[in-house]
Amino acid sequence: MRVLITGGAGFIGSHLAETYLERGDEVYVIDDLSTGALSNIEPLRRHPRYGHRLFVHIDTILNHDTMLELTGTCDVVFHLAAAVGVQYILKNPLKSIRINVAGTEKVLELCAKFKKRVLITSSSEVYGKHLHAPLVETDNIIYGPSSKFRWSYAASKLMDEFTALAYFRTNGLEAIITRLFNTVGPRQTGAYGMVIPRLVCQALNHEPLTVYGDGMQTRTFTFVKDVVDGLSALMACDDAAGEVFNIGGTEEITILDLAERIIQATESRSSIQLIPYEKAYAKDFEDMQRRVPSIRKIQDRIGFQPVTDLDTILRQVIDFQRTLMNRQPDKETTD
């Protein structure tokens, strides 16, 4: 099978590419490297057993000719390319909206043209300001005003969902939508506001762990390998088209407790420093106080169950970040 992954040099995309290469498939990646990195897929390109089955295109998904060729070549499409991370989105609001909305429209248009099954990765952000848990795929959506650019990402991802469902209903396109809840693991960077790698790096450097707000906001975290298993199983499920599925963990934790657990796991001398939102972000930022998914629907459909607990996730991220830190002096010497 030939698999196209938009955003395939990103954190989740590179793990998804690795999974399909291990299965013996051909993988085609397109990524503009705005938030992805070649270092995520370089080991795959050099791998003696399956490097020859990985084809990488450094380009934007808005390039019609490139996407036309890739979509026509491949059997299925995973659409992961998007603006990601709160900090990146607040700094690049127009670019983020354009790539999320116009980019997804381009992917769907070409998948409909070639009748290719496509999986769209949406986000738990689409639920907005709900305080209840767990969040169910049929819940209403509650956003803040348009002046709060925090919600531009959520609204753009919701527009992606509407467009995919419209293609399913009007063109019969086999489109599957997944809402991801805080996927974490090796290769994830904290540069764009991702909380666990950011706090882990601070702890390893014995710096204060910066927790925004009062730290009482809660999240669940899902290991990237568990997420990839869910994505690939949904792609193979004939009964998933035209549906929306949460993919996430069930272990709810406050960010303050998360920071304390990271300090313990790293044996760090760090303290915890609470930072007001207005100092951490632009003035038009709002946070979601609680974000816990219901995974009953995906459990019923494909038997999905996250198997990696939070302590194991933290160990994996800590080991990865330690490896990066140990490599840094060698890189500086070489340069």
Rank of each mutant, 00 (worst) to 15 (best):
V3T: 00
V3A: 04
L4S: 12
I5T: 04
G7S: 07
S14M: 03
T19Q: 13
E22A: 02
D25E: 14
Y28H: 14
L33I: 06
T35D: 05
A37M: 02
L38T: 05
N40K: 05
E42P: 00
R49E: 15
Y50D: 05
I58P: 00
I61K: 14
E69M: 13
D75F: 07
L80A: 11
A83E: 13
V84I: 11
Q87V: 15
Y88P: 08
I89L: 03
P93D: 00
L108S: 12
E109A: 01
L110D: 05
S122D: 05
S122R: 07
S124E: 01
E125S: 15
E125C: 12
H130Q: 07
S146E: 13
S147A: 06
W151G: 03
S152Q: 01
F162N: 15
T163V: 05
Y167S: 11
F168E: 01
L173S: 09
E174R: 15
I176N: 02
T178W: 10
L180K: 02
N182L: 11
V184K: 06
R187E: 08
R187S: 13
R187T: 02
Q188M: 11
T189Q: 10
T189I: 01
A191F: 04
V195P: 10
P197E: 12
L199V: 01
Q202W: 08
N205M: 08
N205F: 04
E207H: 01
Y212G: 05
Y212P: 04
M216N: 13
T218D: 02
R219F: 10
F221E: 04
V224M: 01
K225M: 06
L231N: 08
A236W: 07
D239E: 15
A240K: 05
I247N: 04
G248W: 13
G248S: 04
D257Q: 12
A259L: 09
E260P: 09
A265T: 09
S270K: 01
I275Y: 04
K283C: 06
V292Q: 06
I298F: 07
Q299L: 03
Q299A: 10
G303T: 09
Q305K: 13
V307F: 01
T308M: 08
I313S: 08
R322E: 08
R322N: 04
N326F: 01
R327T: 02
Q328W: 00
D330H: 14
T333D: 14
